[in-house]
Design a binder for these strands. Structure first.
Lengths: 168, 168
DNA sequence: TTATATTTTCAATAAGTTTTGAAAATTCAG
DNA sequence: CTGAATTTTCAAAACTTATTGAAAATATAA
């Protein structure tokens, strides 16, 4: 396998993984392309390498920037914009975790909190069972939340290493 | 808010969360419905409560069973099948983690391993950079994998509690 | 300022995914 | 067995999401 093939394979797989996890396949592919690019790429280069339209490329690049996974690079004397990706996989993971937590988990936790103030006889086994189930999920989510926060704040990669020693 | 509303709210939110994470919205809703049901439900009850067709209900129930999140319950003297969900949220999370790891992460790790045997001058900075990026991702994934395995094997809920003390 | 390169937007369309519903298969009580 | 109840399957339809491409907006060099 040569470099070009290997890159393509990587981009392809990253795209599949992304789409299985609810991330636009093209967005994941653009991300992958930039992850393995040895220099920043222009919109045109991205369009060409992935065979996608300008609109599509533009949209997904901007989305990746809003996730802070990709940065704009200005080359003096060149009118085009170039883009490059954060390559430290720890930082990448923490960014993704942070965004997903903020955009998706937090709203769910909010709903769970609302839900357990409900009227009716607190002794009613139906109500008791429901409240308990929801409250358990809420607590669990709260703990996961706290754990994520700590991991996200632990900017340094070394943390990951020593943390993982706990798991043999 | 009364119990019925609260349940509906919960089912709705669980469905949204699922779809954002690449899980069929209806599957997540059936799961939610069974999570907060005080007794096992039949296919007809699920169809009615979620306003979905028999085919749809059947398909998603079976999918949930393949994830081992839902179990069939046989009521003697009743020809209908009933279904109930695992309610221990720790177990639920571990099941989901396990399935997703197996179905989605493992194939990616396999691709990553294939990819870093590539021909060409190992000194070439292009090749070196690519190999390094991929290798870092592979290592990271390997560690996450190991961590998940440990968590999954730690059947008991107490583990979560002591584990979380690490995060203040 | 002006002309041109570049980026952004968005309505139309394409592609992908989910749902339906009715027919086929299966199950089981009598 | 038989036949009614139940579950399963799957092609077609409905719905959702992603992509295109050309026009509008913006930026910049001269």
């Amino acid at each position: 396998m040569d470099l070009k093939e290997a890159k393509q394979q990587f981009i392809q797989s990253w795209g599949v993984l992304g789409s299985q996890w609810g991330i636009n396949r093209t967005m994941a592919q653009v991300h992958a392309l930039l992850l393995v690019a040895s220099q920043p790429l222009s919109t045109d280069e991205i369009m060409e390498q992935l065979s996608i339209s300008r609109g599509n490329a533009n949209m997904n690049i901007r989305e990746l920037m809003s996730w802070e996974l990709v940065q704009k690079v200005i080359v003096p004397g060149d009118r085009k914009e170039y883009f490059c990706a954060e390559k430290d996989i720890w930082k990448v993971s923490m960014r993704i975790m942070y965004e997903r937590k903020k955009r998706e988990l937090d709203p769910m936790v909010k709903v769970l909190s609302t839900i357990n103030h409900l009227e009716g006889d607190k002794k009613d086994p139906e109500i008791k069972a429901f409240t308990e189930t929801v409250e358990n999920i809420r607590k669990f989510a709260g703990q996961a939340d706290k754990m994520m926060d700590t991991m996200i704040k632990a900017e340094e990669n070394w943390f990951w290493g020593s943390f993982l020693k706990l798991f043999k």
